[in-house]
Computed example of a mutant assay.
Amino acid sequence: MTTIPAYKSQFIDHCIKANALKFGTFTLKSGRISPYFFNAGLFHRADLIRSISTAFAHTLADRSDLEFDILFGPAYKGVPLATTTVDKLAEINPEKYGSLSYSFNRKEAKTHGEGGSIVGAPLKGKKIFIIDDVITAGTAIREAIEIIKAEGGELVGIVVAVDRMEKTPAKDGEDESAPRQSAIGQVREQYGIPILAILTLDDVVEFTKGKGTEDDLRRLKEYREMYKAID
């Protein structure tokens, strides 16, 4: 029996049915051999986008201490996540989130009409929460942070679908077994902001204890032990 919240368990179920979360043997971009793989890009059906936006909304709403005016979705994957999660948050708590806005950036600034590089609510003077699928190397999220800064917004946090909780790959000359932070840990430390996730590797392990195979569970635990970040 799992000990994770119901919305997380339901989300993992939906991920598995959509093949967005798979167990097996996968070679990552880093070269590591992972026993699982997550692909949020497969959440393009109505029922699946409803599932992920609901999970995002619960992840944010569970933190009653967080105050923000806008969900910012970096182009392109963050765009549908921001728009649909704003709607779900308003359903969960209309009093708190009924006036919540969304924004996203254009890849190229518009030079005609109203111009600019932002679509949706203006960021200036507003508290901004970034929403995206994952933070891998941290490059894309830092670009989004610079956009928010340039527009005069105040970044107050980031929420992602999955935190793999694993240390960054070793650079040339580094020992792969040496302790290191994760990409999320590096961003959290650099900017001093909370970074939330619908799921962590720990959540996937807990879910697998109740519904997965013994082999999947063993391999997940071994992978976590081998690559766990210090944060």
Rank of each mutant, 00 (worst) to 15 (best):
I135H: 12
L123V: 08
L100I: 11
T54L: 10
K110D: 04
T111F: 12
K149T: 14
Q181G: 01
S51Q: 01
M165V: 04
E143W: 02
K149C: 11
R106V: 11
D132G: 10
I148V: 15
T168W: 00
G138T: 10
R50G: 12
Q181H: 12
K88F: 11
K167N: 04
L71I: 14
R164Y: 13
D133H: 08
A57T: 09
F104N: 01
E154H: 10
K110A: 06
T54C: 09
D69Q: 08
T139L: 08
I145K: 07
G78R: 00
F104A: 00
F43T: 08
Y102D: 01
R45G: 13
S117R: 15
A150L: 07
D65R: 06
I128P: 05
E95T: 12
L123E: 07
I147Y: 00
D47N: 14
E114K: 09
A144S: 15
E176F: 01
H44A: 13
T85N: 12
T54E: 13
V162A: 02
E91K: 14
G153M: 05
R45M: 12
A121D: 03
L71E: 03
F104D: 00
S117N: 15
H58P: 03
G78Q: 02
E95G: 06
G73C: 07
G125W: 07
K110R: 05
L89G: 03
E176S: 13
D47R: 12
E154R: 08
F43K: 00
S64V: 11
L42T: 14
A161P: 01
D87Y: 14
V86H: 03
A82P: 02
A109N: 13
I49T: 14
D132R: 12
A144C: 10
T54G: 08
A57I: 07
E154W: 07
L123A: 08
D65L: 06
T111N: 13
R164S: 03
A75Y: 02
G173L: 07
E176C: 00
P179G: 05
Y97L: 02
D172T: 11
S177G: 02
K88H: 14
V162T: 06
V86S: 10
L42W: 06
K107L: 09
T136F: 11
G73V: 01
I184E: 05
L42C: 04
G113W: 01
T168Y: 01
I70E: 06
I158L: 09
L71G: 04
F72A: 07
T84H: 10
V162Y: 10
G138S: 08
Q186K: 13
E108T: 14
F104K: 04
T168G: 00
F43E: 01
L123S: 02
I52H: 03
I158M: 12
K167S: 02
T139S: 15
T83I: 13
V86K: 13
H58Q: 14
S117D: 13
F68G: 04
K88D: 11
S64F: 09
G125A: 12
F56Q: 07
R180L: 00
R142F: 07
K127F: 05
I128A: 04
A144F: 11
K126A: 09
G152Q: 13
R106D: 12
A109S: 15
L48T: 11
K124F: 08
